[in-house]
Amino acid sequence: MLLIQMHDDQDNFKTVGNDHYQVVNKPFDIFDEEKSLNMDYRSWVVQFDLDHGWICSTDFGTPLGHEFANSTSSVDLTSVYNPDEDSFYLMFAPSDSLYQIKNCVVERRFKLSSVKPFTYLPGFYEKNGRNRSWRNNPKSASNISLTYDPVNKLYLRVVLVDVEETQPEETDILLRQGLNRNTYLMLIYDQEWNLKAEVELFYDVGQSFGEIIAAKEGLFITKPEQKSEDEYEFYKIDLSRFADK
């Protein structure tokens, strides 16, 4: 039996044919007393159809060391689909490795470049009696988004590079939201994943990085502060200056 805990991020559930679907898995077990991730896990991407069930699953291990076994970042994966080339890419939050996957087979694995190298560290796992808690390491970089710009034929990678905890004593996940100052790096790549540019983004206390949406008109990013929960406002990201002419 194959247990699926589906990621809810962009492109982590997609149609790959008639009644044929692909899912990116998130195998984090909060009830395991010793470790929350089986470091031998290999079924990160699976495909199924409505008539025959499971079709295939990947067979590659995590690029992370065993020190990440109780870190929630170990199963934070982000992916992107390029419809122009029918190509799908996947990467782990605490790693520079990018996987190109087709029909559950890794066709290519390579490391994405950046001007400044990133440091990836496992998160914190704490036990207090029957209570347990997980939180990310504020000193660790984290890949949080991959997006394809169909207008300018570019890839956009967003990495959380610095977290300033204004109230580090607060451990409650819900209460801690919005208390940090976060710095992100937006990296722009061409279709061969060659680095074109890097742009730094700063989000102050009370601001949050939402999501980047790819549309036929280009890319849009949610504003860091919203006036209402019922109506979202966006900025348009213009990457035309980085496009190949």
Results as ranks from 00 to 15, higher is better:
146 L>R: 15
98 L>M: 07
79 S>L: 01
56 C>I: 00
207 Q>S: 11
102 K>T: 13
5 Q>C: 09
220 F>T: 01
208 S>K: 13
143 N>Y: 06
42 R>P: 01
91 M>F: 00
63 P>V: 15
61 G>W: 10
163 V>P: 00
166 T>I: 04
22 Q>R: 11
156 L>Y: 02
169 E>L: 06
194 N>L: 07
218 G>N: 01
162 D>K: 12
165 E>Q: 07
110 F>T: 09
68 F>A: 11
47 Q>V: 05
12 N>L: 09
224 P>S: 01
39 M>N: 05
43 S>D: 11
161 V>M: 12
210 G>H: 12
95 S>Y: 00
61 G>F: 03
49 D>P: 10
109 R>W: 01
136 N>Y: 05
108 R>W: 07
42 R>S: 12
79 S>F: 06
149 D>E: 03
177 Q>D: 04
81 Y>L: 04
6 M>A: 15
93 A>N: 11
198 E>A: 05
159 V>A: 11
244 D>H: 13
65 G>W: 01
118 F>C: 06
110 F>A: 12
119 T>C: 02
138 P>L: 11
158 V>A: 07
168 P>E: 00
114 S>K: 04
237 I>T: 02
221 I>H: 01
139 K>M: 10
1 M>K: 06
48 F>C: 01
49 D>N: 09
35 K>P: 06
94 P>H: 07
53 G>M: 02
216 K>R: 10
29 D>R: 09
101 I>D: 03
191 Q>I: 06
171 T>I: 08
5 Q>D: 09
139 K>L: 14
9 D>T: 12
45 V>R: 02
149 D>Y: 07
87 S>L: 08
187 L>Y: 07
36 S>T: 14
47 Q>L: 04
170 E>V: 15
21 Y>E: 10
192 E>V: 02
46 V>N: 03
15 T>H: 05
85 E>T: 10
101 I>W: 12
32 D>T: 12
216 K>P: 12
58 T>S: 07
194 N>V: 00
228 S>D: 07
165 E>H: 00
173 I>Y: 14
